[in-house]
Design a protein around this nucleic acid. Sequence first.
DNA 1: TGCATTTTTTGATTTCAGTCAAAAATCATT
DNA 2: AATGATTTTTGACTGAAATCAAAAAATGCA
Lengths: 186, 186
Amino acid sequence: MDIIPYLKTQHLCTAEVVEQISKFVHRKTFAKKELILPVENSSKNIFFIEQGLARVFYAKNNKDVTLYFLQENKIGLPIDSIFYNQVCKFGIEALTETSVAIIAYEHWANLSKDNPALQQFSQQLMVDYIKNATDRIYNLKFRSPRERYDTMLSEFRALFLHIPLGHIASYLGITQETLSRLRAEK
Amino acid sequence: MDIIPYLKTQHLCTAEVVEQISKFVHRKTFAKKELILPVENSSKNIFFIEQGLARVFYAKNNKDVTLYFLQENKIGLPIDSIFYNQVCKFGIEALTETSVAIIAYEHWANLSKDNPALQQFSQQLMVDYIKNATDRIYNLKFRSPRERYDTMLSEFRALFLHIPLGHIASYLGITQETLSRLRAEK
DNA sequence: TGCATTTTTTGATTTCAGTCAAAAATCATT
DNA sequence: AATGATTTTTGACTGAAATCAAAAAATGCA
């Protein structure tokens, strides 16, 4: 969904703020497999996925690990660059044709400053992120690959039919071959 | 450090806000191995570690996994309970005698509302958390147990001499026996 | 100091998933 | 539809770390 109406549905913005955000939004469409943010980059933008699907991933040597997926209305945030002035270790790749609203973090922060609702929204994004991250560690430690896969399937079924198996596998913390075997049995 | 002077050093508080926070702080000292927050609890407090050392951990069946360590001036936050009204899957255990400033999240949030600096502080806590979590996933995926251990040692050397090996091992994602062998070789 | 408890180390064995490699299936493009 | 490229599956083998078990060392406390 377009970021502006989306924020409206979230009751986050006065008409005035919407106006201001619009001014700073820069839209771009990425083809499948195109990099929205390359690894080891140092962008200080936030990436709001308006349409499509992307993944946040690490890549090094010949290894590629998906950290998490970004569905519509989610935001990708190069934490390393924005908050620590380092190159960002992860990248963002479009998994389908994806349209992204790009806003310099600086502007976003400025607008948030005078807008509690927007600030609330940012905080919720972070809380959600932390929740996902901690739940994930729990899952990796206390549940088997099979269970993790089953849960993921039930949560994202439709979605994950299009995504290359390797990405799902690395997200689940296993190899593609192991995942393939999981699916084969039973 | 006591939470009040600490917040002052962070330039987060007007005298007035300090006054208000003080009103809501409730202090408690925990003995070594005592639970600051039991697992599967649903506390809506935030736990500021004033002195000592604690760990945030999952425990289930006979498995116990340390999520991360809380040093002085860090805050433990039962995310599940505060933001999702669920029981919190992790607990917090004192590793040494630990003194904790406890504040109901509700009060903290109210005070933050009118205090941008405090809000900034909260945000930074979350950003730090996310940074740690993502770096950790990176380390688990791209670096060997040996490397992870070496890094941890160089970062926390003094600290980790007192902590049971098992906690360090589970934090590093390996068993205690494996860690013991790592230390033996070379 | 000595005893009991806890923690760490060491040893032997097992296993699960990773790796490497190749075949099969699927998808995309002309 | 046919070709080539990509993705998924299957097979055989390997290995790193887990498990199980017991000894050794360290710690705490009466």
